[in-house]
């Protein structure tokens, strides 16, 4: 299926079923992430319940410290 992540199109395998799967697929599991799924900010415990569908929009933000 095709989704949009941070404004760019991304083709993902069917094994990636939910937001948690997407985080693992993108190898971002070590970072504390703020995730918006179709304009809805998710709590961490919702990552496994948020099922991905074709055309979904996902925004991922993480904080950094450098200045």
């Amino acid at each position: 299926m095709k989704i949009t992540v941070n404004g760019n199109g991304l083709e993902i395998q069917d094994e990636v079923k939910h937001i948690k799967g997407l985080i693992d697929f993108l190898e971002l599991e070590d970072k504390p992430l703020i995730i918006e799924h179709n304009q809805q900010i998710l709590q961490k415990e919702e990552h496994e319940k948020a099922v991905l569908e074709n055309g979904d929009k996902v925004e991922i933000v993480h904080f950094v410290g450098g200045g």
Partner: peptide, 9 residues
């Protein structure tokens, strides 16, 4: 570098 831009309410 990755051409990404995100804005979140």
């Amino acid at each position: 570098w990755k051409n990404e831009h995100t804005e979140m309410e």
